[in-house]
Computed example of a mutant assay.
Amino acid sequence: MKKFRLITTTIVLGLVFYLGSILNTPADGAGTNPGTTDDPVVTKSYVDQQIQQALNGGGGSSNPTTPTNPTQPSQGADEVKNVALKPGKILIADAGTEFIVRSGNAVIYTEVSSGVADLTDGKDLLNGETAPKNHLLSFPREGRGIQVKEGQTSNLIVMVRGGYTIK
């Protein structure tokens, strides 16, 4: 009886494996390979462009263009600029501007008693205090900025995100 069971089990398992190998179909979704004309791979900029065209009424052009965001000015507020500040000049920030001092020695300049937020250390820097290098400084209101430390003869290099003026 044990021998019969063993033979039956072997035959059933053999049939299952045989039928499984014949009926094996790959599970690749819709049956197409990615990157072909049936299932193209697209870039984010292409998708953004198509969405922008759909939102603007679908005025389709055959040449792809860079999508624009109508809520931002053409010169982006998130653009970071490297500014060289000469001794004797003051870099005044617009409200919400951020600075990072990259080289040279800088001090905080304010026309009021409140200071500038050093977001790296989490403290306020007041007028005349040294602005540490590689710290993110936030200027909450206009009339505040940085200047080259007195006695320094070389330029100050500052990364700026946002609006500013040089006096």
Rank of each mutant, 00 (worst) to 15 (best):
F4K: 00
L6E: 12
T8W: 03
T9D: 14
T9N: 11
T9A: 15
I11D: 12
V12C: 12
V12D: 07
L15K: 12
L15Q: 11
V16K: 10
V16H: 12
V16F: 15
V16N: 12
F17C: 12
Y18R: 09
Y18P: 06
Y18C: 14
S21E: 12
I22E: 06
L23I: 14
G29D: 11
G29N: 09
A30D: 14
A30R: 14
A30Y: 15
N33H: 05
N33R: 01
P34N: 04
P34Q: 07
T36I: 07
D38I: 06
D38L: 11
D39N: 10
P40I: 11
P40W: 13
P40Q: 12
P40M: 10
T43W: 07
T43R: 06
K44D: 14
K44F: 15
S45I: 11
Y46E: 15
Y46G: 02
V47S: 05
Q49F: 15
Q50E: 13
Q50R: 15
Q50H: 13
I51D: 00
Q52E: 13
L55Y: 13
L55S: 06
L55W: 11
N56E: 11
G57A: 05
G58P: 08
G60F: 15
S61T: 09
S61N: 08
N63G: 09
N63P: 02
P64D: 12
T65E: 08
T66L: 04
T66A: 02
P67A: 04
T68M: 11
T71V: 10
P73V: 03
Q75Y: 15
V80S: 11
N82P: 12
N82A: 14
N82Q: 13
L85E: 02
G88E: 09
L91C: 08
I92S: 04
A93D: 04
A93L: 03
E98D: 02
E98Y: 04
F99N: 03
F99P: 01
F99T: 02
V101I: 05
R102P: 04
R102Q: 02
S103K: 05
G104D: 08
N105D: 02
N105R: 03
A106N: 02
A106K: 01
I108F: 01
T110N: 00
E111D: 15
V112A: 06
S114K: 05
G115L: 03
V116A: 06
L119H: 01
K123N: 05
L126N: 13
L126S: 12
N127M: 08
N127P: 00
N127E: 08
A131E: 01
P132N: 07
P132R: 03
K133F: 00
K133A: 00
N134G: 00
H135C: 09
L136T: 08
S138G: 08
S138C: 03
F139Y: 07
R144Q: 10
G145E: 07
I146T: 00
Q147K: 15
Q147D: 13
Q147T: 15
G151Q: 05
G151L: 04
Q152K: 05
Q152D: 10
Q152A: 11
Q152R: 06
T153Y: 06
T153G: 03
S154H: 09
S154E: 14
N155C: 02
L156N: 00
I157L: 11
I157T: 10
V158S: 04
V160P: 01
G162E: 07
T165W: 00
